[in-house]
Design a protein around this nucleic acid. Structure first.
Lengths: 141, 141
DNA sequence: TTATATGCAAACCCTTTGCAATCCG
DNA sequence: CGGATTGCAAAGGGTTTGCATATAA
């Protein structure tokens, strides 16, 4: 069903863009963990691995990945965006521990359905939503 | 049930803080409309009304109001925070039109209940949540 | 009186942008 | 080769902060 790997080159090219080392590196880096990373994280990790890349390119590349639905941008309200791999993940929302920052993913069909109902009720056509639950995780209570 | 007006002076004093003209002005300004205002809005409105206040004080005052549960801070993902009067409003979440920026408030008990269930399931004790639905409003479709 | 609040401007943080150099196709 | 991509550093936008001055209590 889901591909075991994504051919970034093909996707990039299909968009009429150029396949570069930097773009591949950012994509690899994002795939390398299930964490919700911020741009600085990614920039630093890549530099540490000896890859030549600039912050500007990290941002610009993420933009490309987001636009192609490979990456999801998360705003957790702390002033910087996080990014998570999207291609292999089902839709989900987030539970965030305000103490340690732990992020747990959840998904609830009922809520998804109700959201549609609410949108309909107010005459909106929904394009996306943000649903984040903040509190203390088991370990931090 | 709900007070027809809030005695900011009493609340401020109870916190061991000083009641000032600027604090009262920001509070009045926030109460004067049901809109979701940003800091610059509030700063400008007050200056236009001839009230002497600085941006710094607007931010610092909002902080005080938020901490005392008089005001709610909203992050709609566009880089600046919005603020809404909280003391006279029942809890609600937001539907946001991505075209014209219209904000509609909604409330759904079922979703509220499910959120608690989800938190329990993952061992979290919930303190607050963000639930925003983005799409096109009736007029913008 | 005297510690808290304010105003100002500078600092901050994350992100974006202009531009010359580089590199993909 | 030629235009897209990059790196750099500077600019941007919202928010916060340091410090001297003003002010509530």
């Amino acid at each position: 069903m889901k591909p075991s790997t994504i051919d970034l080159k093909a996707i990039i090219r299909a968009e009429g863009l150029r396949y570069t080392n930097q773009r591949e590196s950012v994509w690899q880096e994002l795939q390398s963990s299930d964490d919700h990373r911020d741009a600085e994280d990614i920039y630093f990790s890549l530099r540490q691995k000896g890859i030549n890349i600039s912050r500007a390119t990290v941002y610009r590349t993420i933009e490309v990945l987001v636009k192609n639905n490979l990456v999801r941008k998360l705003d957790l309200g702390d002033g910087k965006n996080r990014y998570e791999c999207k291609w292999d993940a089902a839709h989900h929302d987030h539970l965030i521990c305000t103490e340690c920052g732990k992020i747990v993913e959840f998904m609830n069909d009922q809520v998804e359905g109700i959201q549609s109902d609410i949108a309909r009720e107010y005459g909106f056509s929904l394009s996306y939503h943000i649903h984040q639950l903040f509190g203390l995780c088991e370990d931090c209570r």
